[in-house]
Each structure stands twice: as structure tokens, then as C-alpha cells.
Design a protein around this nucleic acid. Structure first.
Lengths: 206, 206
DNA sequence: GTGCATCACTGCAATTTTGCAGTTGCGCAA
DNA sequence: TTGCGCAACTGCAAAATTGCAGTGATGCAC
């Protein structure tokens, strides 16, 4: 996902440039028979300098895929309350995941994955990175809250946070796996279904 | 005329921006019934900030008219040679004058002059400014050249340079005056005619 | 006339873009 | 293997853009 939109001219131009680069990269990569598009070509097509290209994306791959290093929003006040914690964490993971990819044109993304399968690896990496950040954020929050940093009889907040994050990630992973095809996208419908299913299960087991 | 074109991305973007601002300013000024277009509107239409607007034009008027503070190119080596000096100076004045206005869309400029007659005053100012710069450049060059800074029996190089510049400006002024209508443009044809006429006269008198 | 809003324009610091001169890794030819 | 060239990527300083907080002039309501 591009830098967040806003009313600021500066911000608007940044998202424009981000999209211009990603679009140029994706289109050129898909069009090109040689499978070898240069950064120079992408930058030129996007109307910016090569150096600016690397201000927006750390690698050419990321530009083609349209990914951003994941960021975790600040956790809201009552986030750690027991009631609904797993659901909130799932939401958080989803938010982080979404903030990592460009919205829209899922078709194009599918074609990209078909033509450049290694992009799937990169996507996986990004997911793991995002989950790691979420885990760290939650661990930090737990450490800051007495009721967590205390009563875990022997277990560390790190363990608790990791466990929580993994549990909360279940419906998302389920979706990716059951989606079957590599490059399958997170359809809103199937996502909702998966979340419902997970919450049903969760309620039955608790 | 906008900043000179070149292969540099930086330069290309500058001319693009320059045109974007001038076009936005001219179009908005012509479209607007109230005769009062704000800088904010122009900047917004051109896709830049108000501050950037003033990086390109010192005043709103100059943006509408599409003028640039005149600059004199460096005088070539043998510029001061006696033979053809007046013609070269006329060329120089013409170059400076041209570098002062945006190329193209003479129609729009006519309409601008009709709607905002005070732009004519501004244009006159710019012409005088340009001539002054040319005079200064020539005076400086003369001062640097022994054969000029010496043998002027009593006259200063300033006087000589001023005299030369005025003489060389004759065909251009003639054009503007004989063109008649305010806002009349320098047609290439009539310009050539005027230059021919002047050179004929000049040869007869020398 | 007096306050008040609007708008042109300026000064300055923060951010972004650019050019340029690298370094590194990799394929390919001799 | 060794050298060579290309292309990804980085560091840094110069240039451009932006936001913001002004100032001053002008017009307009009261």
C-alpha cells in the first residue's frame, strides 16, 4: 500500500509517485518478453530519477510487486483486554498485511505471480516480517501492562505474545492455504467466511 | 520563454512546471469573469504549492503574461569586431527579447492583452530591462577590450555601448510601432522585412 | 474611520528529488 | 580463469519543493 493519503500536497504527490513507479514497474515487467526490465526503464517511464526510485522501494522486486515495509499502527488503549483479544489481533494482522501491498488490480498481481513466481517468496517474507512486528508490538504492550507482565506463571510475555499472534493468524493462513493457487487473493467474501468459521471454532473450544 | 530545454531530467521538469504554471495562469485569467484569479487557484491548477509558484514567477502578472526576467547570453569571442557589430547587436537584442516571453499561442497572448491592458506596460518594462542588460553586457565587454576602452576620444564606453544598443534596437522598435495594434506580435516575416530595410538604410548611410 | 478579512508576496527550515561518483555482484567472452 | 561490462544499489551534496508563519496593502462592513 502506498503512503497514506491525506490533504497535504506533499503527501498526495508522494502517493502519486509511489503509484507511478509501481505501475510502471508492473506493466513493464509484464510486457517485457525478456523478463529483464531495468530500473532505468522503470524510472524513466515513471518520470523520476533512478535515485528517487530507490527512495520509494528498496529493491526492484518490491517495486514490481508493489510492497512496502510493513508498519504496525499504535495499539489502542484497551487492546490487551481479555475479551475479544484474539479477534482484535487478527484484525491487526490483517491491517498490517493490507498496509503492505498495493490495493487494487488483483488481476495484475495474479499475472505477476504467474510470470515471476519468486515474488511469492517475497510476499511470504513480507508476511512473516509483518507478523513479527505485530508480535513485538504486542509483547511490548504486555510488558508495559502489570496484569500481563505479572501473572503468566513462569511464561514470558514474549511467549504469550508469540502464541497469541500465531493463534490470531490462523484464519489468515487458512485462507491462503485453502485458496489453493499460488497468487490467490484475499477475497473479501472468503475472508469473512474464514473469520466466521474461526470464531465459531474458537467459541466451541473455549 | 521557459528555462532552456536540455536532456537533464531536472531541466525538463522545470520547463514542464514553468509551462504548467503559465498555462494555468493564462487560462484561468482568460476564463474568469471576475478578472480576479488568485495565486492559490493557479498553483492548485498547476499542481504545485503557492510557494513554488513564486519560485518561478516574481508576480502573478508575470505568470499570466508568461515572462521571465531577461538574461543575456555570454558574448561570443569576436562580438565587438567592427564589421557587422550593429547586426550582431540587433540579433542579441532579439534573442534576449525572445528569451523573455513564452513561445507559441500568440492568439492567447493577444486575448490577454485585450483583457488586461496593463500587461502591455509590463511587457514594455521587460523590454527596457532587457535592453539595459544588453547595454551593460556590451559596455563591460568594451571595457575589457583595449581597442575600445582606449580610442573613443573622450567618450566613455558606457556612452558607446548605449549608443550602439539604441541604434541596434531601431528595427525592433520600428516593428512594434508599425505593427500598430497593441499586442501585435513579432511576425517572423515582418521582422525579416524590417531587418532588411534597416540594413539597407544602414549601408546607404555608411 | 475602524476593525477585519483577503490576498499577494517573503523568509526560513524541513523534506524531497536529483546528479554523480562510487561499490558490488554476476554473466559472458577471450 | 581472468577481465570486462552491465545493472542494482548506496552515499552525499546541491537543487527544488513544500509548509508555515509571517508582513503589508487593499477593500469592505459597520
Amino acid at each position: 500500500m502506498p503512503p497514506t493519503d491525506s490533504t497535504s500536497l506533499r503527501e498526495r504527490k508522494k502517493t502519486e509517485t509511489w503509484h507511478a513507479i509501481h505501475d510502471a514497474a508492473a506493466e513493464l515487467a509484464l510486457d517485457d518478453d525478456t523478463k529483464h526490465v531495468t530500473v532505468e526503464a522503470i524510472a524513466s517511464e515513471a518520470g523520476i530519477s533512478q535515485r528517487t526510485f530507490f527512495n520509494y522501494f528498496p529493491t526492484k522486486e518490491d517495486a514490481i510487486l508493489g510492497v512496502r515495509t510493513p508498519t504496525v499502527p499504535e495499539l489502542p488503549e484497551g487492546f490487551l483486554a481479555n475479551d475479544g483479544l484474539i479477534e482484535r489481533t487478527t484484525e491487526l494482522l490483517l491491517t498490517v498485511g493490507r498496509s503492505t501491498y498495493a490495493e487494487g488490480d488483483a488481476d495484475r498481481r495474479s499475472r505477476l505471480f504467474e510470470k515471476f513466481p519468486h515474488l511469492l517468496l517475497r510476499r511470504r517474507e513480507m508476511m512473516i516480517e509483518g507478523e513479527d512486528l505485530v508480535y513485538q508490538a504486542i509483547a511490548t504492550a504486555m510488558a508495559d501492562h502489570p496484569e500481563w507482565s505479572a501473572g503468566l506463571n513462569g511464561h514470558s510475555v514474549e511467549s504469550a505474545a508469540r502464541m497469541l499472534t500465531m493463534a490470531a493468524g490462523v484464519p489468515l493462513r487458512y485462507l491462503l492455504v485453502s485458496g489453493g493457487m499460488p497468487g490467490a487473493r484475499l477475497e473479501t467474501d472468503s475472508l469473512t467466511t474464514a473469520l466466521d468459521l474461526y470464531q465459531d471454532l474458537y467459541r466451541k473450544l473455549s
